[in-house]
Design a protein around this nucleic acid. Structure first.
Lengths: 394, 394
DNA sequence: ATGGGTTCTTTCTACCACGGAAAGAACTGC
DNA sequence: GCAGTTCTTTCCGTGGTAGAAAGAACCCAT
């Protein structure tokens, strides 16, 4: 939702900015290898970023009998970004630096599902986060939601709030004065993994989120895959066990039915004869309770099967597990890995499983990551040299 | 396996060549839109192709009160390509024009699995095909095999022949004198679909082959996905029904167990109490035999489940079904589509299923398609104007 | 038949991004 | 302090690209 009057960054400049942002202090020589550019191009391309204070030169690193490199780095405190994830009952926000590192967080209960009300709550949350950290202006706001969101920030559907075709980004931009973008929550988390996650150099990987639901995102050849069906949660309803309990949509034994925290809590409550929460089930299983243990083992096997289907059908060899319910992994990893191994051809290369332990924070951080990528996209280096705090936005 | 001393085609020239090859006669104006190039660039880029006779100008098409366009087209008969698919017992070959249209085919029984023997058989097959068509020189040979093949045509493993690290392309290049490339069979068929199939404009789609085995290929954002595990047939062992019969690797109810022709024939033989072949099962089911019918219906449901897993996990909305066993679709389509619909969210866009009815020919044609794409890659337009028949190769 | 309108194609020219080469800078070790 | 090495910059050439304008080919209305 930001206007783009000037041509914008060239493809190469944008890639340079991404590399420096993602790979911390990095010498021009290293950048030349990564981006396949000549030293000459590197000097030329990085100058405008240095001029505007977006890049800084890190302290020289001497290693051996050579001229030491003067690594480039982003000025991580050049700007702040706010990310907010909207769920059915809460708006959860973080404020981060340019590398999506959270500096503060806050949340607000949502007492109404009305669009205007939620916009007001998010705007006030953003304001609170803005005042929570000093030192740099907020350069962008990212908002995510479980639903389908267009590129220009219109939520075409978010069934859990009953929304249809509401201009979320535009409304928040008007309410906060910040450049705002909206994105599907799983896509945002996937983007955050692509830029700032452990697999940021992998090029191709899948993301599975476990929590209130099961989410699925895919990065192939450095591009996040988006389809018209993104936001429907299709990856959350993969059939995993034929005789499993049905999910809320009626799919027996699908990934949501086997792995989502409400399903697990309900299943455990039924088996134990009393109402237990998700965390309690994990605690019980951790303490050795056989009933809880059997439930987490079953969930683990289902997860393993999901992972094997993902590697084979999406043709990725790395998978990130994230989300607020990911503590399940601590208990279910053995059965999940056993199932994955059983399903996979013994000649195949092993699947690389990465756990993002940040839990719920990952969601809001994803929203901030989207804001960061958008800010990069709308960076203008052609305008007469602006000094630092205004390099972004404006 | 072709030497590349000169720089080769630029990215844009290569893309232009692909567009003209793939989209038949097409005006420079249309090309400008597709490739996002100015008219000026189109003239400049297409001239070298016209000079060498690779492009021809198709008859002008008048449509309305404008200047008629002079569409560009490839000279489809400028060169021939031979594609050979090697199976456990047969080498099956086709000779095609530049658009991978088969002009003649032939096959040879394989009586030995020894590398040298098979190389000799394929070379003789290629020679027969060469002499079967007149009018243009053969510019390339593509060979495919069910196994892992490196970019330079070394078969690292092909278990059904007991091969390990054999230089297939190099040996055939020496034996035939033709620029030769080798590729995994499913990958080759996928490339053929990407360039010459109905979904060639889709950008992202999956390919499922049904026949002696089940194959799986993926194209995302106009790129065929290859991994170190390509050739292991991982996509052929997706678990589909929990209580199904096991495949030869022991996976109960996996895609091979449910859909491969030997599995279906074995299953039917057992149920009918006599030995029947795959074709006979389909005939019986077509004639209304309830036992055969129940088997094809079960296969259909398994196929539908496979398709739903593919759309959801690979995030594609189009799938090509191909291979020598695809006649199954005529019988199993209703149950497959019913299962697909049941598994898929009703709000999701429908999955686009495309049948490639060419059966076994699709395999050899895939091999030829790989040769065509390689020939394009090694095209040199910088050398002093060579006249037609030598534009390729040399 | 003649000129106007439209679209396709080409020519000419200017531009910008990138790479190659060589010089300069910074450091270690002898 | 000089040699050796690597990193970085400057200068300049090249090639691919777009913009503008002219030319070409056609239909149609007058």
């Amino acid at each position: 939702m930001s206007d783009d009057q000037t041509p914008g960054l060239g493809k190469t400049s944008r890639e340079l900015a991404r590399q420096v942002l993602v790979h911390g202090p990095i010498s021009r020589a290293d950048l030349g290898n990564r981006l396949d550019l000549s030293p000459a191009s590197l000097t030329r391309l990085s100058r405008p970023f240095l001029d505007r204070g977006i890049f800084v030169e890190a302290p020289a690193t001497a290693h051996g009998a050579h001229r030491p490199a003067k690594p480039l780095d982003v000025h991580v405190d050049a700007a702040r970004f706010i990310g907010v994830k909207i769920t059915g009952d809460t708006a959860y926000g973080v404020i981060t630096n340019l590398r999506a590192t959270p500096l503060a967080d806050a949340s607000r209960a949502l007492t109404s599902a009305a669009f205007d009300d939620i916009v007001a709550v998010v705007a006030s949350l953003a304001d609170e986060l803005d005042r929570a950290t000093a030192g740099a202006p907020v350069a962008g706001l990212g908002v995510t939601i479980g639903g389908h969101v267009t590129d220009d920030g219109v939520v075409t559907r978010a069934t859990f709030l009953g929304w249809h075709d509401v201009p979320l980004a535009a409304a928040l931009e008007a309410a906060t004065g910040l450049p705002t973008c909206a994105e599907n929550d799983v896509t945002a988390l996937t983007i955050a993994q692509q830029w700032f996650g452990e697999l940021r150099d992998a090029g191709s990987f899948a993301v599975v989120t476990v929590g209130a639901g099961v989410g699925y995102g895919l990065v192939i050849h450095d591009r996040v895959i988006k389809t018209p069906n993104t936001g429907l949660g299709l990856g959350g309803h993969i059939p995993l066990v034929d005789d499993g309990p049905p999910c809320f949509l009626g799919h027996p034994g699908c990934s949501t039915a086997m792995l989502a925290s409400p399903s697990i809590a309900a299943h455990a409550s039924q088996q134990l004869g009393r109402t237990v929460g998700y965390g309690e089930v994990l605690d019980l299983a951790g303490a050795g309770d056989p009933t809880a243990r059997s439930i987490t083992d079953t969930a683990g096997r289902a997860l393993g099967r999901l992972l094997s289907c993902i590697t084979n059908l999406a043709m990725v060899d790395s998978i990130v597990l994230a989300g607020d319910g990911i503590a399940l992994w601590d208990l279910a990893a053995p059965s999940a890995l056993a199932q994955l191994t059983a399903d996979r051809d013994p000649q195949a290369t092993p699947v690389h499983i990465v756990i993002d332990p940040s839990g719920f924070t990952a969601w809001a951080r994803g929203a901030a990551a989207v804001a960061i990528t958008r800010a990069l996209d709308s960076l203008r280096l052609t305008t007469p040299a602006a000094t630092l705090p205004h390099a972004f936005g404006g």
